[in-house]
Write a protein that binds this DNA or RNA. Structure first.
Lengths: 212, 212
DNA sequence: AAATGTTAATTGAACAATTAATGATTAGAA
DNA sequence: TTCTAATCATTAATTGTTCAATTAACATTT
């Protein structure tokens, strides 16, 4: 149904250019002319393929989101225990942000623009499935005695996801603040942080050992 | 040095209107005319008080940030233990976002715009102080044996802060996804989540009880 | 108190540049 | 030929910004 985006044809080039510019500058600050120039295309051609600027923005957003692999459900169900499943999801989410560099910035903009939300449905549906998956996993782990039942599963799921999400969205700022250049875009460093999140989250969810 | 912003004079009204509109729509999507109308002021007056649109944006950003109470350092040093200090900081950060509703959205935009960053210095300096404070606290707790020394203090600090930050920035989306309206703006609900973050983070940082 | 001069605050009108969007038109392929 | 893909030229509206002119505020002198 969705032909894979091909930058060598005009429509694909427009989508690619739009993705980069919208991610970098946002909807309002990005001009149709700039997208056309970057795509090596006449600006009127954009209106041949898309209704208007907003429609192109929506198309970019859904394109980026739908290009993401969504095997997280499968990955989780393959894992032997809730702990392993959770770890795999965290690693997978980090890999996902690495695979699509425009994603964190587009998400940050959508969050800030939540009133004039654009392609919220597709983005939000994905987020919902992910949160439900994690919350269910935590619930299962609690029932099995491998997670601390004191936590509300939904809130704990937010805690888990927020770490990777925030790290990727605030990446450039974190690089400067911690004075560790590359930590947010270097795949090794990102995966290392994901590993830290795994340890941190599993430690948080660990059942309390019959404390006094 | 900074007279408190007074919405009853023109300059203050412009700053207030600018804060709301910039937070809601961003720099490029917000027009000078819209700010002037909202402030009940002629649009040319904006150029009497500020050099240009960007200067107004910078002024808004520094205004919002500098209005924030920054007693976190004091709060932390008053706490008897690193655990208490960390808990107080988490609660304080949540209260801070509640006190300044425009802040999370402005931050999200600055993060997305990090190349064309505007008033990064003032915002970043605050973030740096906060992260350093937390990392130092974690280090101290590790040295005292009350925190698990396996964690890198800086990364653990990011993990702690990211939860509240993400919750406040992604608030409206979380409301819809979890189908819990009000959870992101209702002070009680936000403080409840902050309490969850305290429990989650302290559990994560707890020293391991001599496991096999 | 009244009048005056001086500075600050505010406005209306206009400008130049940019922008999104259209419609007519043309090259190329099926 | 007929349909798709692409360009050119243009438009109509918006935008940030400036500037001269006007009003309000205020201290000083009469």
């Amino acid at each position: 149904m969705n032909p894979p985006i091909n930058p060598s044809n005009a429509r694909g080039a427009i989508l690619v250019a739009g993705t980069e510019l919208f991610a970098r500058q946002g909807l309002a600050a990005t001009t149709i002319k700039a997208i056309a120039e970057r795509a090596g295309v006449n600006s009127a051609l954009i209106y041949y393929y898309f209704d208007d600027k907003e429609a192109l923005y929506d198309a970019v957003l859904t394109e980026v989101v739908s290009r993401l692999p969504d095997g997280l459900q499968a990955i989780a169900s393959q894992a032997p225990t809730p702990r392993d499943a959770l770890a795999a999801i965290i690693r997978g989410q980090a890999a996902l942000f690495l695979s699509e560099p425009a994603l964190p910035r587009l998400i940050a903009r959508e969050l800030a623009d939540h009133e004039a939300a654009h392609a919220t449905d597709v983005l939000q549906e994905r987020a919902r499935r992910l949160l439900d998956l994690i919350a269910g996993l935590i619930r299962a782990g609690q029932a099995a005695g491998s997670f601390n039942p004191a936590f509300e599963p939904e809130l704990a799921a937010v805690s888990v996801m927020s770490q990777v999400n925030w790290f990727c969205i605030a990446g450039p700022a974190i690089e400067r603040i911690l004075d560790r250049p590359g930590i947010a875009k270097d795949p090794v460093a990102v995966q290392k942080f994901a590993e830290h999140v795994v340890q941190f989250s599993l430690a948080a969810l660990a059942p309390v050992p019959e404390a006094t």
